[in-house]
Design a protein around this nucleic acid. Structure first.
Lengths: 164, 164
DNA sequence: GTCGCTGCAAAGTCTTTGCAGAGAG
DNA sequence: CTCTCTGCAAAGACTTTGCAGCGAC
């Protein structure tokens, strides 16, 4: 498959915008706009979570049971979307890949190991340092992910009260 | 029995220390100290790279061909070591996990999505900012991990030559 | 001797691929 | 109409598991 041309960037975009960009992308590469591809994009857009291919497939089956979308199509579309930088895949530790729309704003994660709550944050200083580091090594950064694990303020309080 | 490695390097834990900790861990859990487990630990210790289970298995077969260590044992031992926080696993892009000794100094990772090579780095600025962020939010940080994805200098060169 | 460990092979997972018919352009 | 896409099922890649004999303690 030829290298995909893309017009996407990292700004937060509305769905309509995303969709028309996607159609343009397809047209440019002589690919077809199918119901399946639209449903996959829409489901990704409407999810706030990082989805595994399987989770995405489940959501789609629930939303559009008549389509009988195959898991193979989900994988193929995710590969296409990833190559076009529409979605980003992340491996969060344990198993499998998870996908999220790359068009959403970048953020890092604070993860409470007590209650599982995930807080998003962005720190300009850190972002800057990352560029300094990669520039120094001639590394072309495409993405990064950072997770800080610990116990959130609420849980610390709770644990204190419980005398643990 | 494999020889103890006495090379001078900058690891925070010497092999003998690691080995005796490992033996203690096994004893505590009523597990047995076997040649296979020792060879796996030693091979991990002597490798400067992040190893896939398969790569580790290959190294072991080359080093101790008479043992005929099975890949299943490698997987089982890695799972044991990971659960005991002796090794850490990293998942990078495409497929499979890679393992490294967790007893080394803390560091973050630069991951080349082209060749899979992992480069370690530590940046004091970033470490400091993490503390500032968590302190501000009253979050008790216990650990963190950061991965920067992109294309390493060597692969950029290679891709350029291939005209991609 | 006991009971956990090991190698082997078989069974699971997860992901990709080949194919013939369906469908977008 | 043409040529890409799709679902299905089969194949691959990677990892785990069942089992019978082996070996640490």
């Amino acid at each position: 498959m030829p290298k995909i041309n893309t017009n996407f960037n990292n700004r937060t975009v509305e769905y309509e915008q995303l969709l028309s960009d996607f159609k343009l992308l397809l047209k440019k590469n002589n690919l077809k706009f199918t119901i399946q591809r639209e449903v996959i994009l829409e489901t990704l857009y409407n999810s706030d979570e990082h989805l595994t291919p399987e989770a995405l497939h489940h959501l789609i089956q629930k939303k559009e049971p008549d389509l009988k979308t195959g898991i193979a199509t989900v994988y193929r579309t995710l590969a296409l979307l990833e190559e076009s930088d529409v979605v980003t895949s992340l491996s969060f530790g344990a198993q499998g890949k998870k996908y999220e729309l790359g068009a959403k704003e970048h953020h890092d994660h604070l993860i409470c190991t007590e209650c599982g709550k995930i807080t998003e944050f962005v720190d300009e200083e850190i972002e800057k340092r990352q560029h300094v580091i990669t520039d120094e090594l001639g590394f072309a950064m495409s993405d990064h992910s950072m997770q800080i694990y610990g116990i959130c303020a609420a849980c610390q309080k709770k644990l204190k009260i419980e005398g643990k």
